[in-house]
Design a protein around this nucleic acid. Structure first.
Lengths: 219, 219
DNA sequence: TTTAATAGATAGTAATACTATTATTAATAA
DNA sequence: TTATTAATAATAGTATTACTATCTATTAAA
């Protein structure tokens, strides 16, 4: 990711850059709203086209298929999360504090943060929670990975692994622990809302216990 | 789950019991083979029908849709894993050994174990690794959960949480830790094979390091 | 001003996810 | 035994999905 507010996206994700045109930004903005509303399975380009008064083929000129659009918005989310972490940890020397801050940022309920005009971070966060794994749980993971489509997720993981290495250079599984933190912050949140018996924080509205659990796991 | 070798499946999962007929068993057996081969997205009842020389509508008489078939086989897998754990932990008193055995069973590469004639556990294990999460990552989780379609997964989680409580009755997050173990045993395995930079055991063929990681996490 | 690129609208196609109907076979009652 | 009913199998049909292709209108650059 780039350290500017504008997140540079992998060019292989789209046929034409959606950031550059009105229609492109509408596709992203309302794509997020619609996927959030009806779920990725029921989401189609035709339905999205109706919402933004364009045609199916209009959207196909930007994205090859709906899966690429999903990866696009999920990638954007991970880059945004990494940006937030870098921002909040800036000038912090103590690696323990860096890790704690990271856990908090990943576990907290996200609100639409208004730094980006056409992306609703709250909805995006819920999409990543419910549909995020579908971006790589496919028969074409390997090709997609070669095309660097999952780079933002891997970058975030590597950054957190870096904090863990700073904290304890001898620890043998920094990457595994980092991906565990990211994944658990999201999937336990999904369980809390949908399958509470898989957690110990069923139905609770705040994330304090989840943060406590993750901190215990790490330290 | 029932303690017999025959796993009793939730009746809401099917329209007619696939265990009771030749065609039904073929649907399960070749359904597993085909989902493993082409992935759940590309899998259709028509393609499966061709493989077992029946018709699409023949399969629809057993399962409402392909998602129900997925839940059926994923549920079978979790019940089978719980059965294996109960079996291997039988007469063991020490909760630490119980947990270690559980971690080993969940992390080990599964081979087709031949106790069941028409289900290939090795393929099923890989399906759960790649497609398992899709059984509950839907807009209808809540209804499915009310219909108890995820009971085998929750039972397994509760059993492992029980071991954790035995080991340390004061620990505050037994269910969360249990679901973390189950999930990480499967998703880290997926990463090892497909996105190795998210782990510290990239490309390795055995699960020793994964077991060590999970044990460090718990103890 | 001409050309070239872009956007928009329309139509078309193969495959998917089903449903409904008809045909066939098996089981049971008169 | 025959007639009736019931269960199962096969066939056909439909709306939607996931695209592709074509044609026209508009805008922008040379």
């Amino acid at each position: 990711m780039e350290l500017s507010l504008k997140i540079k996206m992998n060019e292989k994700l789209f046929l034409r850059n959606p950031e550059e045109t009105e229609l492109g930004r509408k596709i992203i903005q309302h794509g997020i709203v619609l996927i959030h509303k009806i779920g990725f399975e029921a989401f189609t380009f035709k339905k999205l086209a109706e919402k933004i008064t364009t045609t199916e083929s209009g959207i196909y000129r930007y994205f090859e298929n709906k899966h690429r659009l999903l990866i696009y918005i999920v990638d954007w989310y991970w880059s945004w999360q990494e940006y937030r972490i870098i921002y909040h940890v800036y000038n912090v020397k103590n690696p323990e504090i860096k890790i704690k801050k990271t856990i908090q940022l990943l576990s907290a309920y996200v609100k639409d943060d208004m730094t980006t005009d056409y992306i609703n971070e709250k909805l995006l966060y819920e999409i990543v929670m419910c549909e995020g794994a579908k971006s790589f749980l496919t028969k074409h993971v390997t090709e997609d990975n070669k095309a660097k489509l999952f780079k933002p997720y891997k970058d975030l993981c590597a950054r957190i692994a870096g904090f863990i290495k700073e904290y304890n250079p001898k620890y043998k599984y920094p990457n595994t622990l980092a991906s565990t933190i990211i994944e658990m912050a999201h999937s336990q949140k999904f369980y809390m809302q949908n399958l509470p018996s898989l957690t110990d924080f069923g139905g609770e509205k705040d994330e304090k216990k989840l943060v406590a659990f993750l901190e215990e796991l790490v330290f």
